[in-house]
Design a protein around this nucleic acid. Structure first.
Length: 152
DNA sequence: GCCAACGTTGGC
DNA sequence: GCCAACGTTGGC
């Protein structure tokens, strides 16, 4: 059981979108960074906790909590020539990119990036480090606990 | 829109 | 294998 922070641009997929599809699940596609892919491929497990983070928007921050609900599987968009995520070097036999499904657990108040920076228990979070751009990052149990408490 | 930081590509 | 050039991310 591990914890993760996953970034999404709310213009693409917001926490509201994730909650609206609660009956089903939301496929997480379009990751095109090897480090993030490897986290999904090698470490993510069904039941892992996810902090849903809104990036590249007026108020960046954590907007809700979700859960991993599938094993990794090939990201279909890598084979779709019409997709902006198309990758000519990926083949069905040797896919490069991976998706997983998440399910929204709870929309929370927005824990803004600015507020996160003021909380000592969070200062080591990868997402707060200078120059950090990884869209999927591990979260420690202590960080998770502190954030869940703040969001109550 | 700016720009720092990072990742990827490709020539050598 | 090095590294310059380029593209992307993402806060501000």
């Amino acid at each position: 059981m591990q914890y993760w922070l996953m970034k999404s641009e709310p213009d693409e997929v917001s926490m509201d979108d994730v909650m609206a599809s609660q009956a089903q699940t939301t496929p997480w596609f379009g990751v095109r960074n090897y480090q993030a892919r490897n986290f999904m491929r090698d470490q993510m497990q069904v039941g892992d906790g996810v902090l849903f983070y809104h990036s590249s928007c007026p108020e960046p921050g954590i907007a809700g909590v979700a859960e991993i609900v599938s094993a990794p599987y090939p990201d279909a968009t890598q084979f779709d020539e019409d997709s902006k995520y198309y990758d000519a070097k990926a083949t069905q036999e040797q896919p490069r990119w991976i998706s997983i499904d998440v399910k929204g657990t709870q929309k929370t108040r927005l824990l803004s990036l600015a507020e996160m920076r003021t909380i000592p228990a969070l200062e080591d979070m990868i997402v707060l480090q200078k120059g950090s751009r990884l869209s999927i990052t591990p979260v420690t149990p202590a960080q998770w606990k502190a954030i869940v408490k703040l969001l109550k």
